[in-house]
Structure formats: C-alpha cells, structure tokens
C-alpha cells in the first residue's frame, strides 16, 4: 500500500481498539488505585506519552497542505473524512529538531480543552500502558513536558497537552 494511495481511513483502529480495551480495564482498576492510561509514541528516539482519554484517533501520515502565515510548528492541515484539521509538529512544539515524516509517522488526533480537535505529528506510536497516578513526577520548567513517568528502565515524558496546544510558536 503506497503512502500516497487511497486514504487509509481508520488506520488507527487497532490503536483505538487497544485504547478502548485499556479504558475498560481502567474502569475496573480505578476503584482501587488511580491509574492513568497513557498512549506512548516516539519523538527523536525518546518516548513520550499522552493521556488516552484526550486521543480521538490515530491516523497514518497523509498529504498535509501547508498553510501560509502560520507559525513554524504548524505543519498545515489535513482532511479527516472531510473535517479539516490543523496538524502541529510535536517535535517543533517541544523544541526538538524537525524531521521529515516517515512511513512510521502518525498523526495523533487529540481533543482540545475547549472541544476542538488538533492533529499532532509524531515519529511513531508505540503502546498504551497504565501508570499509577502517584508514580508521575512533575517536570520542571515551562516546556511542553508536564511530568515524567517511569516505564521499565526508561522515563516517559508526559506531554502537557494544553500547554502544547496553547503554544503559539513564540
């Protein structure tokens, strides 16, 4: 299947399914411990995460129309089944070096805090896991990373979604 071929609608369905499953598990687990479901993905070789509840869908990379006069961290707009949605380059939002999207790249479509949606361009989606809320360590600084979470041997950086969406490129 070529990247430029027909749209792979619902390309993120497997992930959505995983996310739903995880959400079901959480419903059971939440009674005892406060768990948060995290979708992890990669940016410049490092793991990052978002709360699953903020993720609407994950789609394959598709042609992005650049929008002039927009800040540099906005890649442009894509069509999601007829909806026109801005896509932000999450690398740039976090001050990481920009890179050309690859086949593994995905657009994570997230819910904004005020009902809107936005696409986030990531290098590749990895997994969904649940973390106890009390294991999250607040990150220092004003950047896009809100907290750190230990996962096996590594630390996963939890994205502060509202900070990222509020980022105006300055």
């Amino acid at each position: 299947m070529s990247e430029s071929g027909a749209p792979v609608l619902g390309g993120g369905e497997r992930w959505q399914e995983l996310a739903r499953e995880a959400a079901r598990r959480r419903d059971v687990a939440a009674e005892s411990v406060d768990l948060v479901q995290l979708l992890t993905f990669e940016l410049a070789g490092a793991p990052y995460a978002l709360p699953v509840e903020r993720v609407r869908e994950i789609v394959r990379i598709r042609p992005i129309t650049p929008v002039p006069r927009m800040p540099a961290h906005v890649c442009g707009v894509v069509s999601l089944r007829g909806e026109i949605v801005q896509v932000l380059d999450l690398r740039r939002c976090l001050g990481l070096p920009p890179a050309t999207p690859t086949r593994a790249s995905r657009i994570v479509v997230v819910h904004g805090s005020e009902g809107g949606v936005a696409g986030l361009l990531v290098d590749g989606v990895t997994e969904v896991f649940s973390a106890a809320e009390d294991t999250l360590r607040p990150a220092s600084g004003e950047g896009g990373v809100e907290a750190l979470c230990a996962r096996a041997e590594t630390f996963v950086s939890l994205i502060g979604l509202d900070r990222v969406l509020g980022f105006d490129g300055q």
Binding site: V67, R69, V85, V87, A118, L165, D168
Partner: peptide
C-alpha cells in the same frame, strides 16, 4: 469548510 485547530485563523485564508 472551517479549519479546526488551536491556532487562530490566518489573514487571507
């Protein structure tokens, strides 16, 4: 169609 997203509309579009 309107463009959805966090960045306010740009002039000219």
């Amino acid at each position: 169609k309107p463009i959805q997203g966090p960045i306010a509309a740009v002039r000219g579009v």
